[in-house]
Design a protein around this nucleic acid. Structure first.
Lengths: 162, 162
DNA sequence: GTAACTGCAAAGACTTTGCAATCCC
DNA sequence: GGGATTGCAAAGTCTTTGCAGTTAC
């Protein structure tokens, strides 16, 4: 599921991130720009190993495709800048989310096929902040994940049983 | 933070888990019993690598201390039986929870010292189940984690600044 | 007795790091 | 020019697996 984003929006986002890098004293190298560009195309959720493969497949057209360590390092960097966030771990892998300006939301995960559905529920955010406060914590962020079986997989299961 | 549990309660729990193993056709081997016993002593939250070390330290008194692969395998087994649940990943490690009969609850995690505080909020469970249903999912379970800085660490930070 | 289980060592998978070469400012 | 960044190869972690020997039932 590639990011549904227009050419202009993509360009604007790229510029924004480059700006952000500069502001924090990081260099806007070719490898980083390429990675970010790929990331924008790739979609909202990604795992680094998948991303590495995906970039490689597309890199016949390009030279200097960002190497695995660069991908890891750049993703970590983008996390620092707030553009990327680890949302869950599946097996050994970290699933990240690329969040160019999007509100608080949660994930409904299908344990059968891995599909992620996003949903919002601001009440939960409020509740959770209240609880943190009650316990004397400084609230930073929270993370909710709901696991189940998606409608498609449920149907498949039914068919199997018949 | 070891599990606050009396000698009798521990014995009872051990028996229950052994029973559960038998019922599912698994053997109650010495290694498994030892591991479970250690697990009960260890506390509510654990990481396997820590547990391995912890057990080893205590194993001078015992022979046949369960090996690393056995710990991994037994924890996975206990997860199948529903006694143990992975609750979060910190870096590469999986943090498990040992849950002998305890209701739905959540975690408040201090990002500075790693302390976990548990809290309950049944409304969240209800809400989340409703959302799953709305999306056509069969609900299985959910997981909420709130991150912040605990009161103690906040104080330390303040002291540093002065 | 035999299938399940264990421990060991080794392999796997994801992630990080040391270092020489390269690139950005 | 000089420090940041890259790519490579190698190392680090956590976790899993193959297999020969052992154990529970």
């Amino acid at each position: 599921m590639p990011n549904p984003i227009s050419r202009e929006e993509k360009q604007k986002l790229l510029e924004e991130i480059k700006e952000s890098l500069k502001n924090r004293g990081f260099k806007t190298t070719e490898a980083r720009q390429k990675l970010i560009s790929y990331l924008i195309d790739y979609g909202r959720h990604f795992e680094i190993e998948d991303l590495v493969v995906w970039i490689r497949e597309r890199c016949r057209d390009y030279k200097n495709c960002p190497s695995r360590p660069t991908v890891y390092r750049t993703v970590k960097l983008l996390e620092e800048l707030g553009y990327v966030k680890p949302v869950l771990k599946q097996g050994n892998r970290t699933v990240y989310e690329f969040l160019p300006v999007k509100g608080e939301h949660y994930h409904l995960l299908c344990l059968s096929c891995g599909k992620l559905v996003e949903f919002e529920a601001p009440q939960i955010g409020d509740m959770v902040k209240g609880i943190a406060q009650r316990e004397g914590f400084k609230y930073l962020h929270h993370h909710l994940e709901v696991c189940g079986i998606c409608p498609e997989c449920l149907q498949k299961e039914e068919r199997k049983e018949n």
